[in-house]
Amino acid sequence: MKRNISLATATLTLMLAALPLAAWAQPKVTISIKAEKEVSVTAKGKAVKKRVAAKGVQPGEEIIYTLNYVNSGTEAAKNVVISDPVPAGTQYIPGSASETGELTFSIDKGKTFKKPTLLTYEVKAGTGKSEKKVASPDEYTDVRWTIPQVPAGGKGAVSFKVKVK
């Protein structure tokens, strides 16, 4: 009976010693957003465009959202999915999302994501028959990038633009 207790204690000690090692090796992805807009400035007599922080914008202006991700963990992060709803009061600008990983969009507030050509919905035609219609970019509600793997220490950025209504 005494021997059995000693064996159990030894097993528990071994398990506790092994746990920190398993918890330590994991991915740790951080995400941040930067909102910017382009302004025209004159440098050396020439008009050039410059990006500045978009604290305030006017209707009609474009906001450039840059999403920075960093894996500061000790192992690779897999199936990294970055999802960003198109903010209320704005409209996605066609073709503005960076082509990183697999780029998909949603027209149902993030319930489903598909590539643009597959984003369809049905409308009733004048004949009463249902017709499939490909969603236009201004109907996109969410943007998603799926990146297969971000290695430990790896980082990257994706971006897209919206127009303020």
């Binding site: 995400i31 914008v57 690779a76 199936n79 970055i82 971000v150």
Partner: peptide, 13 residues
């Protein structure tokens, strides 16, 4: 206020 909330979901190795 135009609020943009981004989410990243990922898995371990």
């Amino acid at each position: 206020t135009i609020l943009n909330v981004v989410t990243v979901d990922y898995k371990d190795a």
